[in-house]
Computed example of a mutant assay.
Amino acid sequence: MGWDDVFKLVTAAIASVGSAGILILVLSSWLGKLWANRILEPVKHRFATELEATKRNLDVIKETTLRSLHDKILSYRAVIEIIARILATFDAYESGRLPAINAAARYDEFNEHRIRVYGYLTTLAPQSVMDAQDSLMDYLLKICNGRDTYEWARVRVVALAALNAIRADIGIETDPITYNGDL
């Protein structure tokens, strides 16, 4: 056996082991991926299921929150319309455009609206809104009962406090509205 034969034999041995090594490496890589996929499949399925459930829960929370805010805005709008009507009646009476006999009938209407407003607010308003509303209604009731005088500037301050409490509650703006006019 000569050096050529020895070289051919060593080369053949290395080539056969190298080919087998490559084959073993490829097969072990494939088998590792197969096992990993089989092991991870239940985890991926559970994760996807939990993710979908979380998305559904978030959608329900979002829808509930939006509906609640919409209901709150509609109720506050009704409250503001009632308060505007009450204040317009007071202004008409104080300026002499509404006779006393009609004012008495409007007082009964005011009382009904006042109770309705309170009912609307108790279903959705926080205490800060209720307190501001109570201050406004107490002042107006004192005027109706002759225990206080009607002063538009005071009415405006108390009414703006109620409106600012509403605005803060629905998150429109936290900075309060102020009257900057001349009257």
Rank of each mutant, 00 (worst) to 15 (best):
T54V: 07
D59V: 00
S29P: 01
S28T: 10
K44T: 05
W30A: 08
R56P: 10
E50Q: 06
E94H: 07
R106S: 13
S68Y: 00
I82E: 11
Y93L: 05
I101L: 15
L31A: 06
H45Y: 13
R85N: 13
T49C: 08
P42S: 01
L34H: 04
I61L: 14
P42Y: 02
N57M: 04
R56T: 06
I39K: 11
T54P: 03
D91H: 11
A103L: 13
R97I: 15
A88I: 09
W30C: 02
I61W: 05
A100T: 04
L74F: 04
S28F: 11
D59N: 07
I101G: 13
L58W: 01
L40C: 06
A100F: 14
E112R: 08
V79T: 04
R106T: 07
S29N: 08
K55W: 00
E112V: 15
V60M: 04
T89I: 13
S95Q: 06
S29T: 09
T49H: 09
P42T: 01
A84Q: 13
L31P: 00
A104L: 15
L69G: 00
E63G: 00
I115T: 09
R67C: 02
N102D: 10
I82F: 15
E81D: 12
E94T: 05
L87Q: 07
Y76E: 00
R116C: 09
N102R: 08
H45R: 07
